[in-house]
Design a protein around this nucleic acid. Sequence first.
DNA 1: CGTCCCATTATGTACATACATTATTCCCGC
DNA 2: GCGGGAATAATGTATGTACATAATGGGACG
Lengths: 260, 260
Amino acid sequence: MELARQSLTGHASGPQPGLDGKGPLFGQIKRAVAGQILRGHWQAGERLPNEAELSSLYGVSRQTVNKAIALLAREGFLVRRRRAGTFVAAGRSDRFALPIEDIGDVVAREGRVYEFRILDRKSLRNGAAIHWPDVPDGTPILALDCLHFSDGTPIQVERRLVNLDAVPEVAAEPFDRVSPGRWLVDRVPWSSAEHTVRAVNATADMAALLGVEPGAACLSMRRQTVHLNRPITLVHFLSVGERFSLSGSSITDSATELNL
Amino acid sequence: MELARQSLTGHASGPQPGLDGKGPLFGQIKRAVAGQILRGHWQAGERLPNEAELSSLYGVSRQTVNKAIALLAREGFLVRRRRAGTFVAAGRSDRFALPIEDIGDVVAREGRVYEFRILDRKSLRNGAAIHWPDVPDGTPILALDCLHFSDGTPIQVERRLVNLDAVPEVAAEPFDRVSPGRWLVDRVPWSSAEHTVRAVNATADMAALLGVEPGAACLSMRRQTVHLNRPITLVHFLSVGERFSLSGSSITDSATELNL
DNA sequence: CGTCCCATTATGTACATACATTATTCCCGC
DNA sequence: GCGGGAATAATGTATGTACATAATGGGACG
């Protein structure tokens, strides 16, 4: 089938240097170009051959080269400037990331039993007992306190505010089966979010909830979710340091994606 | 100029519903489709019109639709299956991320003075005093202990191992000007990395270095960088909880990118 | 000698077309 | 009815072509 695909190219060119014949042509080009850079043949800041040259070098059309190069640029590996050319991007120290998942998924993936319990549930208005900065005063808000368990051990406290103007249906939801986090994710599919992670010492009441000594190190995570410019929910998670960690790899799993 | 662009389309179709005439056509299609979903007209799991239908709906060619839809799929908004069709992706709780930057950049961006000091520097071989699991025993390793300051206050301890087989030049580098982290980023352009973040209580010696009480909550970050399947460096950062936090927003700033 | 303008060059976008790939669906034979 | 295979419908990839856009660099002209 690879042969069949290659025979499609109308070019009568040579052995297509650097291409491995695996998968789509534009992917092969991506790998070939990325390989050149990873191997140091093309240094950071250096200018690449232009699309026409690459096209004849690899024996494919300019569009195919364009697709490969444009994707590499979109992934942050290359920088392109019209008329100037295509350049190898500088270091990408700022592009590492930590994925943040639903705690239930994390627990389930570890093969443990996930449970949660609603500790408290209040309807109130913003500005009185509670102040949510990005929401106008007087906005109706649902405040939820929730505790998450892994194999029966408490691992995370969740304090959540939900904007009832934005998600009125939440008022009728009992949260006896689905956790508030998951319910919201399913309901408001795509939102942008901001989060902050820090380490804090457990206060006495938090320590009691989580079953640890007061002062134990905890991971504190604040996340505000916004949808159509309206704040949807503001969550504060507190997790026991010993029982919870965040881990992940680079955003663009380019190495994986490119099979390098 | 928009008119000029639109006049290019060989289609004699109508007012191109939902398109805003701003920027490239495929971008307009992206915004239009994303808008349909954000507004709830197309629900999660629902099937979209196929490329041919979208193409005639918007009065553009199938390639242009394909480019827009393929990009939305690559960004995680849609799921495509051959023959079956294109579907609105389910919630994306797992796609949030925290960017991780060079500590010097973070401090500088806050308008503070960044400094660092090398506390200790040893050349040794793996397996003896130190064991780096992903590196063969006997591999020569440079071990660095480093302290980072913001406006003179210590904020982070760094314990770093560097694989001297992979980066022999590091042995000659004095690190009097450039911090080890930055030096490596500049030297080894693209590597993939894995990291883990957790909260720990400061041990006595760490607390002394950071100038806090023993037991103070600290953010602990482990990061291993790999290049061409060879581990390059293994770092362990420890930061004072009160003086350091990680924050970031969604990976795909699609809302930004799509101007929604 | 300097400044403006235009030709050149490289990327960016769009369309038409063709064929590949892959599930699904449906129908036929058993 | 059931299993298997063919038709089909959707996306995926590749090429050719054309023109748009932007920035560079050099040449004309003051």
